[in-house]
Design a binder for these strands. Structure first.
Lengths: 153, 153
DNA sequence: TCGGGTTGCTTGATGCATCAAGTAGTGAAG
DNA sequence: CTTCACTACTTGATGCATCAAGCAACCCGA
């Protein structure tokens, strides 16, 4: 936390503007190809993708929400829709009656399989084709450091 | 554009996850303090802030939309609300009847003045206090390169 | 074992973003 | 001077995110 807070100088501004530009434009760019290919938003895709990597392809709602960078409320709404479309299923946790477990269905796996190649291509086109290995590591580190500060808020 | 599109490897994944984490969490973090302080979203604040820097504090809607990283439609809706709140005014462009010019009102300037210190503080807390000058330059460059690819889509 | 506090999740209302469609002005070819 | 395509913007409908409130289930101390 800085003591005084003078307005950003030119150098800072010429990093800040691109950063918010990125942050505001990337979600839309990611949504577009996924919507077109399989009718999912990037957030919905993320939910399924995280589930796929999970033990038994099953996860507590709150853990899922955290890993998907969204609120529990947002996830709850989205999970209702995805469940309605047969892409995941929810059931009460046997060991803790408060928790809900979400698990990927066969339909969900299929949609993921269908969506993945196009999505990966988009990600490569937008990010990884642009940078060297070293730059990629650096980018990841910087993002992690900012996230840590957001969490600390 | 890469030829094949194999799934991301571990190194790529450990940059990709933080990047989308950042992109999904930063907007909310920026909205929060602005909402609390002056009841504006970050996008609305951005519209006013860009106008303030403009020649005569006035700008064509489409140029404004571009600089604010949003669609013209989004800006149009937002401008209607901001105009309703007396923070900006719109009027027909005298030289091109298709264009609309938006200009900052005194009320808009006041709100900006009230919002700026807290917002700058947030931005410093989240970003600039974390990084050296060199890192900041680097971050800006990387974001610019990604944006260029998004635009090229 | 019972009360208060906490956790985990869902829901309904509100407000915002997005998309497609519509209107109107402009420029340029014929 | 008219028509056609294009640009600039607005609008209305839909669907999504967010917030506050609510409801169980759990935990823990007395």
């Amino acid at each position: 936390m800085s003591d005084a807070a003078p307005w950003l100088d030119d150098e800072e501004m010429s990093a800040w503007l691109p950063l918010i530009g990125l942050v505001m434009r990337l979600p839309g760019a990611l949504d577009q190809s996924l919507r077109r290919d399989v009718g999912l938003s990037h957030f919905e895709y993320g939910v399924l993708a995280v589930l796929e990597q999970a033990e038994d392809q099953t996860m507590r709602m709150s853990d899922l929400a955290y890993l998907c960078n969204g609120s529990l409320s947002r996830l709850s709404h989205v999970a209702r829709r995805l469940e309605g479309d047969g892409l995941l299923r929810r059931y009460a946790c046997p060991t803790d009656g408060r928790s809900t477990l979400a698990t990927l269905t066969d339909g969900g796996r299929e949609v993921l399989k269908k969506a993945a190649p196009g999505h990966v291509q988009t990600v490569r086109d937008l990010i990884f084709d642009e940078f060297s290995r070293d730059e990629i590591r650096l980018l990841g580190d910087m993002c992690r450091r900012i996230i840590a500060r957001i969490q600390a808020q």
